[in-house]
């Protein structure tokens, strides 16, 4: 346990050191958030009168801002450090440690995601929740959570989203043993995760077969489901079921990654002699 903690601490410290990069990232996210909200506002303005949207504009804007706030938690791609480790073959060094390699990687990825999140979420939260209404952009600001229950649900699901994100990160990194599969895995992950987590379009706005698809995939438990608690479209009554499904997905992704890694390592051991 101690070594996992050390891995976690080392990785998070090295992320925290890049304050300038974080500042730049925060600015970029303010800007992106604003652009996306204005685009959303234009969609609502262009809608025919009487259009029944599952989200109000204020809710959709909040959804976008929540996406910017937890942006760093979304596993777009594998952990670059882990990928370098795999690609350079230094992975062998991890292998000879008397530790479960897999647990170590998970701890590292979790630290990477959480440290970046901690660095970035507060300024964007303050900006979107308090400053935007103060400068007359209340229509596209982040609304406060739907009661204490909504906040609780959001936070609990976010707490579950962090390990799920780390697990998906490791899962993607499992495919880095070969350049070809690495490029492919990163691309497919980026496309699937960005779309089906709800980061690209608020999922509640989509219906039909797409809805069926996103409900069948784990990615919405990273973002969409926690957001729905914040917005109040899911309530405390839905909390146990949501948490259970999230936990099940976590378990499934972990098991799958573990199986893949073990197979890859066995192949590597054979190839490496």
């Amino acid at each position: 346990m101690k070594s996992y903690l050390a891995a976690f601490r080392g990785r998070s410290r090295s992320v925290l050191r890049y304050r300038a990069a974080a500042l730049a990232g925060i600015f970029t996210q303010f800007f992106f958030g604003l652009i996306l909200c204005m685009i959303m506002e234009a969609w609502y303005r262009s809608a025919a009168p009487g259009l029944q949207a599952p989200l109000s504009l204020r809710q959709a804007a909040s959804y976008i801002w929540l996406g910017q706030i937890i942006f760093a938690l979304i596993p777009w791609r594998g952990d670059p450090e882990l990928q370098d480790l795999v690609r350079s073959g230094d992975v062998a060094r991890d292998l000879i440690r008397p530790l479960d390699v897999f647990g170590l990687w998970l701890a590292r990825s979790l630290a990477w995601r959480l440290a970046s999140l901690l660095l970035r979420f507060l300024p964007i939260l303050v900006f979107s929740l308090f400053i935007l209404p103060a400068i007359g952009l209340g229509d596209i600001a982040l609304q406060p959570p739907a009661g204490l229950g909504g906040l609780l649900g959001f936070l609990l699901l976010l707490a579950g989203a962090a390990p799920l994100s780390a697990a998906i990160t490791v899962f993607i990194s499992c495919f880095q043993f070969r350049q070809i599969s690495a490029v492919g895995a990163n691309a497919i992950a980026a496309a699937l995760v960005s779309f089906f987590s709800g980061q690209l379009v608020p999922l509640p706005l989509l219906g039909g077969p797409v809805e069926l698809l996103y409900r069948l995939l784990p990615f919405r438990y990273l973002a969409d489901v926690p957001y729905r608690f914040w917005l109040g479209s899911l309530t405390l009554a839905d909390l146990p079921a949501s948490l259970a499904i999230q936990a099940a997905w976590l378990l499934a992704v972990l098991t799958a990654s573990r199986l893949i890694i073990q197979r890859q390592l066995r192949q590597l051991a054979i190839a490496g002699g």
Binding site: A42, A53, F195, G207
Partner: peptide
């Protein structure tokens, strides 16, 4: 997928400005 998102938004809202 970005363009797909644009397409799906049209399904919902029918026009953009």
């Amino acid at each position: 997928v970005e363009f797909l998102a644009l397409y799906l938004m049209f399904q919902r809202f029918r026009s953009f400005m």
